[in-house]
Computed example of a mutant assay.
Amino acid sequence: MHQPTWMNAELELLRDAARRFYDTELVPHEPRWCAQQHVDREVWFKAGAAGLLCPGIAEAYGGGGGNFLHEAVIFAEQSRAIAGGLGNSLHSGIVAHYIENFASEEQKRRWLPKMATGELVGALAMTEPGTGSDLQSIRTRAMRDGDHYVVDGAKTYITNGSSADLICLVAKTDPSQGARGVSILVVEAAQVTGLRRGQPLHKIGMHSQDTCELFFDGMRVPCENLLGAEEGQGFRQLMKELARERLITALMSLACMERAIEETLRFTAGRRVFGQPLLELQNTRFKLAECETQAHLAGAFVDDCAQRLLTGTLSPATAAMAKWWVTDACGKVVDECLQLHGGAGYMTDYPIARLYQNVRVHRILAGTNEIMKELIARDMEKRAA
């Protein structure tokens, strides 16, 4: 298994603590949570008490005071555990950073400590029916009326949607201005009317993760809940944070690749074909060698991107490269590993089948891989100009 170049004793302790938490508090409950399509609310409080929420947020706001590497080991271990129901990579890795980076001091002190304890669960509402990855074409509107915005529209595929207490909502505050008319409002769900949550969406995988549609019918949000000093900053805020989101998706895919290889090594060593272990057949050995190489290449790329993120030098184009290449490689590796399981690989009793279900969405999350290639090509065009 790939060992990150940045791993140290402190991060190893955090990784081991996260692994024990997931093995105890998540994995045993996954079948029940898959059936109900969301985790129990109390597990958020347990994760907060264990120090797994907001590890990269400053201690002054109730966070762990760490950095992206602390988040990376926590999110990777959860992916490796195949226990994706707790939407923490979004809550801690994305939503909390929108607030820490762009909110006012008063907003940070009001929201972040409660996110760190699990009292507030965060969600990010970007995607809409019919718009997908095209954020400039969103139709949800937030029109100013006195000291409130009146919001009308809908969002879909919202992780943590049913349980979210704090929703970073992307909306048009000035539809005539295109991207310059996009703003982010922070919706405190318990304090608004006009917010309606749809039924849980039935997905191919990630069955235990809370995913739903959100509807806004004249929802009134205080103007003071605007994220940023003025309207029209939303698209810039999104572009700044999407690189982080794309890298998180890549590192989760890497963890799933590694788990798939580990499972397949164990299975093929114990499965006998034609009187010998499946692992001794040349085809098995060559396929696993290819998978291991893909995982090491992905690991080196993710390591480099993580270091760049820490120093503020991770470009949107490089994050897009990591996101599409690693998630694509993950899909191929998991598929090869499932094939080596034979019929067992199609049975959800086996971890490889659940990995196969879950990783397919990685090529869609945080912007589809096709959009990633378009972003990379646009960056290349600038060099040619």
Rank of each mutant, 00 (worst) to 15 (best):
H2F: 12
M7N: 03
N8I: 05
A9H: 06
E10Y: 00
L13H: 02
L14Q: 10
R15E: 11
A17I: 07
Y22A: 13
E25V: 01
L26C: 04
P28C: 02
R32C: 00
C34I: 03
C34P: 02
Q36M: 06
H38I: 05
H38F: 06
R41E: 08
E42G: 01
V43C: 01
W44E: 10
A47V: 09
L53F: 13
I57G: 02
Y61H: 06
G62S: 11
G64Q: 02
V73F: 04
I82V: 05
G85S: 05
N88V: 11
S89H: 07
S92E: 04
S92G: 04
G93T: 14
G93D: 08
A96Y: 02
H97R: 01
E105G: 10
L112W: 06
V121I: 14
E128F: 05
T131I: 08
G132N: 15
I138H: 03
R139W: 08
R139Q: 15
R141E: 11
A142S: 07
R144C: 06
G146Q: 09
G146H: 07
Y149H: 04
V150W: 03
V151F: 10
T156F: 03
N160R: 02
S162H: 13
L166K: 15
C168M: 13
L169A: 13
A171G: 07
A171Y: 04
A179T: 10
R180T: 07
V182I: 15
T193I: 01
L195M: 01
H202V: 14
T211M: 14
E213A: 15
L214D: 07
F215A: 12
F216P: 08
G218Q: 11
V221K: 12
C223F: 04
E231N: 14
E231K: 14
F235C: 04
M239L: 13
L242N: 12
R244C: 06
E245Q: 14
E245H: 12
L247R: 00
L254M: 07
L254G: 00
M257D: 02
M257P: 12
E258G: 05
R259P: 01
E262M: 01
E263N: 13
L265C: 03
F267W: 07
G270F: 00
R271A: 12
R271G: 05
R272D: 10
V273K: 08
G275S: 15
L281A: 07
N283A: 15
N283H: 14
R285M: 09
F286L: 12
K287I: 11
K287S: 06
K287D: 03
K287W: 12
L288T: 10
A289K: 07
T293G: 15
Q294M: 15
Q294V: 15
A295W: 12
A300D: 10
F301W: 09
C305F: 09
A306R: 00
T311C: 06
G312A: 09
T313P: 06
L314D: 11
A319F: 03
A320I: 12
M321T: 11
W325C: 09
D328E: 07
G331H: 03
D335A: 05
D335E: 10
E336M: 01
E336C: 04
Q339T: 08
G343A: 15
A344D: 15
Y346N: 02
M347I: 05
D349E: 14
D349N: 14
D349W: 12
P351I: 04
A353Y: 10
H362M: 01
T368L: 01
M372T: 02
E374N: 09
M380P: 00
R383N: 09
